[in-house]
Design a protein around this nucleic acid. Structure first.
Lengths: 196, 196
DNA sequence: AAGTAATCTGAGTTATTGCTCGTATTATAT
DNA sequence: ATATAATACGAGCAATAACTCAGATTACTT
């Protein structure tokens, strides 16, 4: 690092014309590309700007600092994931329990397949990642969802502590699928499902 | 970062006198302290040296670069963990399966309790952490252990793919316990065990 | 006591990188 | 056309941090 990044990011101008919107897109795409292909170490604002084909000044016109760019990247990724979650959650509410579980896992797999490499870098290489608001809120929403499913079917299952169960289920599925997808680009669907 | 860290670390002088051994200890302790109390961002070689009460020059006399210090920190931590594993593995071989599982989890909990904060920082904040040899070898050894237990009791369990089972079990237990210990300093022993 | 090796010191070098700011260019409004 | 706002540019500032090196201390030998 050089100058310490400001904690509070005074918001920057939002793009109004098509030209600037294109600039922002180029920056975001370049950022993702560099993170995925070259890792967090290579993720410098100057390099992102260069790859995006815009000047460093333009980058800072729309992102107050480096973290803001990272945050936007994560925000977009989580939005993508949440959409697939929504799509599957609707269907899964009335089905038999076993199917719900299967669907949940399947959904998680899908999420990770959206952009496995970006997902990996975001979760493993980026330091202090937990600090972003987006992620905290996202996890909370996911846990709420799992809990509501559990509570709706309380009679079908045997659990003492619902909070703990939610916690374990969330982490377990996430961790296993995350590891599977990021490390083994095979044996996704059938194997994992069956064993669970 | 400033100057790029050298990839190949030409080894430095090993301490021969008590004085220098004490210096090395002080450096390692200071490094752990800073990582735990102030996070990876604050983990600079200059700061470690200062906290250790030695000059920056002394640090570089025993650690060729920053990564070497980090690596040593991890090596020591893994050695600690492996010792508790050894201790429990012996006892668990002949017991009934349920007890073995319980013991395995218990052991994992113990490992994380050795130095939970250091463990957390090491696994979550330090970038490019998977690159260290020590960790790779460690994971391999752990998986071998789990596999041998599974194979020895093949008749008692129902699994299709042993490799996959080993993989899932390892990751699941690790992930859940890791999350539990680092995030919730309560409800360790009983709850987690029972639900599993 | 003198010589040699081990250890320690810390100011300075060097490279990196986040970010600013004055200026130039392009689009929109009048 | 002219004015005004939006957008783009990029050289360079300022801070930071890994790491070096020449010389000072301290400890072992003989």
């Amino acid at each position: 690092m050089a100058k310490r990044a400001k904690k509070t990011a005074n918001p920057r101008k939002a793009p109004e014309q098509d030209r600037s919107r294109a600039t922002v897109e180029a920056i975001v795409e370049a950022a993702a590309h560099i993170l995925v292909k070259h890792g967090y170490d290579a993720f410098t604002t100057n390099r992102v700007a260069e790859r995006a084909g815009v000047s460093i000044g333009s980058l800072y016109q729309y992102f107050p600092n480096k973290d803001a760019l990272l945050s936007e990247l994560m925000r977009r990724h989580l939005v993508d994931i949440e959409q697939t979650v929504e799509a599957m959650a609707a269907r899964a509410l009335s089905a038999p329990l076993a199917d719900v579980i299967r669907a949940g896992i399947q959904q998680n797999v899908q999420s990770h397949l959206i952009d496995p490499e970006l997902h990996r870098v975001l979760s493993e290489e980026v330091p202090r990642l937990g600090a972003f608001d987006w992620k905290v809120a996202f996890i909370a929403r996911m846990e709420t969802r799992v809990r509501s499913i559990l509570e709706a079917r309380r009679n079908e299952i045997v659990v003492g502590d619902i909070d703990l169960a939610v916690y374990i289920i969330t982490r377990t599925v996430e961790a296993v699928v995350h590891n599977a997808v990021t490390r083994q680009p095979k044996a996704i669907a059938s194997g994992a499902l069956a064993d669970e």
